[in-house]
């Protein structure tokens, strides 16, 4: 992408900034009708794939997340690549990408490179994308865990930026992943909780309680106009435990 150009996908983030006068891009590269970006083959999801398509055809927890994004109007327009590019701590698709260790594919005139999610997301709305790079695709691993669940907590069902987002996955061998959004500057994994529960074949009440406690301990939320630090910390543990229990059923 040319120097100083702004990429526009579904417009659900950028156009809000434009309408409110927060940004006034001089050169916009409109990506909505770039066919290559809408391609989706196996685990390689083109950056231009919309929530609407993910809701229908995505892996279970990503489809669950897509289904709760905004409204039909927003899901028809917004894309996974745009969600990744905006890199909001509250990005709906990001906990799933973190849970499965997805990679972000970046394209520029000098070629393509792929960064793992935790090398790509470096802060609140900050990524490792160079200005000349375009997010071209999101690469999921070949094998995804059978058990995967997504949920978020917010004040209403539609059109809400939630206060906690969570994905829990559990593989046949017990390996468990827990990813959370809106409770740290970037989407995070609760690695100590993962480690604890992955080695337990049939978690009992004690294990589940300790799992929830560790999740609450590992998140680093803030208090803002949407929620408090305390509530986010508490609900992170509750939500992760609930999703783990669904995975174990």
């Amino acid at each position: 992408m040319g120097e100083g150009a702004t990429a526009l996908a579904g417009g659900t983030d950028l156009m809000v900034e434009v309408n409110f006068g927060h940004t006034r891009p001089e050169n916009v590269v409109a990506l909505r009708r770039v066919e290559e970006l809408a391609q989706w083959e196996g685990g390689r999801i083109g950056a231009g794939v919309t929530w609407r398509r993910l809701e229908r055809d995505g892996p279970r927890a990503l489809a669950q997340a897509a289904r709760t994004v905004g409204s039909p109007q927003i899901r028809n327009a917004g894309t996974l690549g745009g969600n990744v590019g905006t890199a909001s701590p509250a990005g709906d698709g990001l906990p799933f990408l973190a849970a499965v260790d997805a990679s972000i594919e970046l394209a520029s005139e000098s070629g393509r490179r792929t960064l793992r999610w935790d090398d790509f997301f470096i802060g609140v709305k900050k990524t490792a994308r160079r200005p000349d790079e375009l997010i071209s695709a999101i690469q999921l691993p070949e094998a995804l865990p059978d058990r995967q669940e997504f949920a978020k907590i917010g004040v209403r069902n539609a059109m809400v930026i939630a206060t906690v987002y969570c994905v829990v996955t559990r593989a046949e061998d017990g390996e468990t992943r827990v990813a959370l959004g809106s409770v740290a500057p970037t989407t995070i994994r609760a690695r100590r909780a993962e480690e604890l529960i992955s080695s337990v074949a049939s978690p009992g009440e004690e294990d589940l309680r300790e799992f929830a406690r560790l999740v609450s301990e590992e998140v680093t939320p803030i208090t803002d106009h949407r929620s408090t630090e305390q509530y986010r910390r508490h609900s992170s543990g509750v939500l992760a435990r609930r999703l783990l229990e669904r995975c174990l059923r």
Binding site: L8, G10, G11, T12, M15, V16, V18, N19, V28, A30, R32, R33, R52, P72, Q73, I74, N76, A77
Partner: peptide, 15 residues
């Protein structure tokens, strides 16, 4: 827009 229900406030006119 091109068969999809969207909010026109989020579409760039040039697009």
């Amino acid at each position: 827009l091109d068969g999809e229900l969207v909010c026109s406030c989020l579409v760039l006119a040039g697009d």
